[in-house]
Amino acid sequence: MTMPDDLIIQTIAPTTHNLGDFKVYRSLPAKERTMVGPFIFFDQAGPAKFGPGEGIDVRPHPHINLATVTYMYEGAFQHRDSLGSNQLIEPGAINLMTAGKGIVHSERSPDDERARASKLSAIQTWIALPDALEEMDPAFEHVPEDALPVLDYGGAHARVIMGALWGQQAPVTTYAQTIYADIMLRPGGAIPIEPEADERAIYVSGGDAALDGVPLKAQTLYVLRPGTRATLYSVDGGRVMLCGGEAFKTPRHVWWNFVSSRQDRLMQAREDWDAMRFPLIPGDDQEFIPIPQGRPKTVSYP
């Protein structure tokens, strides 16, 4: 068994943002670390409960040089973007939106969710694009729940969201080598964590879990030492996200909703959004989120 100090090389407690009716726990980017593999942003949103007539409205806003990955635990979002995409996402499915040279999108609670009491719980991540693909054409894809491979280890149920894990390959586009999985641990359940990725991290979104006997805290990101094998285990049951992949050779910078290998590109995107030079969203072009004044909540650190 790998000793705990050799297995976990970094522990990141998220910053917490209270968005009125629900909380967001943000683990990446952090002061101590910007990326794990291609993952440069990691949010747990909720869980939250809404009464009839209530919901979420993430107004139109821009992105560049990244891909967003939306994965729902509970509830639903209606995604719209400047390509004309209009897609409902529900638990177990994936929305992958590639910003490339620039895209605008919104995410809102659908009408049927607003009409009744509802819940919302989701994991939202951003994936940095490799240098040669940062300015690619924008794209959007939706992969339904039944298209993603699911493994049953007896006491663990794992859905492969991106990349190849446990001998299964997800049909979701990747731009750099990427691993991403949703692991449900039943009481007493266990699953192996494989070493095949440059960088890996695990995040307990609910319940309890331990890694090779080391108890893990909920809402905490644990970065694993490269090349190590481990066993993930739960006493009472828990839910864990596994993410990581290829280590980038060139650093990435983050400012608000923009990611790039070049800081001047971030400044250009700020100017373009402020001047409304980004494309609009068909059917959702009456609102927008303005450029933050001062330091935004999402930044990388020098």
Score class of each variant (00 low, 15 high):
Met267Glu: 15
Arg270Lys: 14
Pro144Gln: 08
Gly102Ile: 08
Ala210Asp: 15
Thr68Phe: 02
Leu96Tyr: 07
Ser234Gln: 01
Glu90Arg: 14
Pro4Val: 14
Tyr203Phe: 15
Gly163Val: 14
Arg186Pro: 00
Ile291Met: 15
Met136Cys: 14
His157Ile: 04
Gly92Cys: 13
Asp152Tyr: 02
Trp273Met: 10
Leu96Gln: 08
Arg262Leu: 05
Ala210Arg: 14
Pro62Asn: 07
Thr98Trp: 01
Ala209Ile: 10
Tyr153Gly: 15
Glu135Val: 08
Phe22Met: 13
Phe22Asp: 06
Ala230Asn: 07
Ile127Pro: 02
Thr2Phe: 04
Met3Val: 11
Pro138Arg: 13
Ile94Thr: 12
Gly227Phe: 13
Ile291Phe: 08
Glu90Ser: 13
Ala67Cys: 08
Val172Tyr: 00
Glu113Tyr: 06
Asn95Phe: 06
Asp111Trp: 10
Gly227Ile: 11
Pro187Met: 01
Thr15Pro: 00
Trp273Ile: 09
Val58Ile: 15
Arg270Pro: 00
Ala170His: 02
Arg33Thr: 14
Phe258Trp: 12
Val254Glu: 04
Pro29Ala: 06
Ala164Thr: 15
Gly237Ser: 07
Ala30Pro: 01
Glu194Phe: 02
Arg229Trp: 11
Ala197Gln: 09
Gly227Tyr: 11
Lys101Ile: 13
Thr178Met: 02
Gly245Val: 11
Gly155Ser: 03
Pro290Trp: 06
Asp272Ala: 15
Glu32His: 06
Ala190Cys: 05
His79Pro: 07
Val259Lys: 10
Thr220Gly: 12
Thr34Tyr: 05
Ser121Phe: 15
Gly75Arg: 14
Asp81Phe: 10
Pro215Asn: 13
Ile103Asp: 05
Arg239Phe: 04
Ala181Met: 07
Pro192Lys: 09
Asp21Trp: 01
Ala128Phe: 06
His142Trp: 10
